[in-house]
Simulated assay, not measured.
Amino acid sequence: MPATTLRHIAPVFVTTDLDRALRHYRRLGFSVEAYAGADFYGYARRDGLEIHLATVEPIDRATTTSCAYVWVDDAAALHEEWSAAGVEGRLHAPSPTEYGLDEGAHVDPDGNLVRFGSPSSRETHGDAR
């Protein structure tokens, strides 16, 4: 039996520019703040989720491996919201998977990946006879 219960997890995403990263996640609907006025660490929070942002130099955007998966109520609605925000980076529309989820993704300007998914709105697996 475990000695304690795990309560929360917060991925740490790297950035070369904390101010830019905080602005980016604010436009995605997160509340953001720098750690005690520091220019090297900050937080982005939304709906009980938390992403930490840490300044690291240099970053190879082609090989950055920070990633988080976010379960959402409606992946298509989140994609529409983030599309309307007009943020930098890459945004991929959700598509149905063979395992019953609609999944999309966003890669921020530093190469950090946020994948998101919700139960599929379409039948994508099994026999439809």
Rank of each mutant, 00 (worst) to 15 (best):
E103C: 05
S83G: 11
P11R: 06
E80I: 02
T4E: 14
H106F: 14
E57Q: 14
A105R: 04
M1D: 15
A62K: 14
A44C: 05
P109G: 02
F30E: 00
D39P: 00
S118L: 10
W82L: 08
Y99S: 10
R122T: 15
T97R: 08
A44Q: 03
D39T: 06
S31A: 09
T124M: 01
Y25R: 04
Y43L: 10
A75Y: 03
A84T: 08
F30L: 01
V70R: 03
L78I: 03
N112G: 13
R20Q: 13
E57N: 08
E50N: 11
R7K: 11
L78Y: 01
L101W: 15
Y25L: 07
V14I: 14
I51L: 15
N112F: 13
H24A: 03
S120P: 05
P58D: 01
A62M: 09
G117N: 12
G42P: 09
R90F: 09
T65Y: 12
A36L: 06
L28Y: 09
F116A: 03
A105L: 07
T64Q: 15
A38M: 12
M1K: 14
A128Y: 11
R115F: 13
T63Y: 09
W82G: 06
R45F: 04
H106K: 08
D110M: 01
A93T: 12
V107H: 03
V87A: 14
S31M: 06
V12G: 06
L28R: 07
A38E: 13
D39G: 06
V87Q: 07
L113C: 07
H52M: 04
T16Q: 15
A38P: 01
L6S: 05
R23L: 13
V14S: 13
L91N: 00
D102N: 11
P119M: 10
T97P: 03
L6C: 05
A10M: 01
E123D: 13
A3Q: 12
H52Q: 05
R20N: 09
Y43T: 06
S120G: 10
R26L: 07
E80K: 02
T124Y: 01
E33S: 14
H92E: 15
L49H: 04
A62S: 15
D74M: 03
L18V: 09
D47I: 02
H92N: 12
A62Q: 15
R20F: 06
D127V: 15
Y69N: 11
T65P: 04
R61N: 07
Y69I: 12
D39L: 00
P94H: 11
H24F: 11
H92D: 14
P11N: 06
H106Q: 12
R26K: 14
S121V: 11
H24G: 03
D74K: 01
R122A: 13
R20I: 08
A44I: 03
D39C: 00
S31G: 08
W82I: 08
L91M: 00
H8F: 02
E33Y: 10
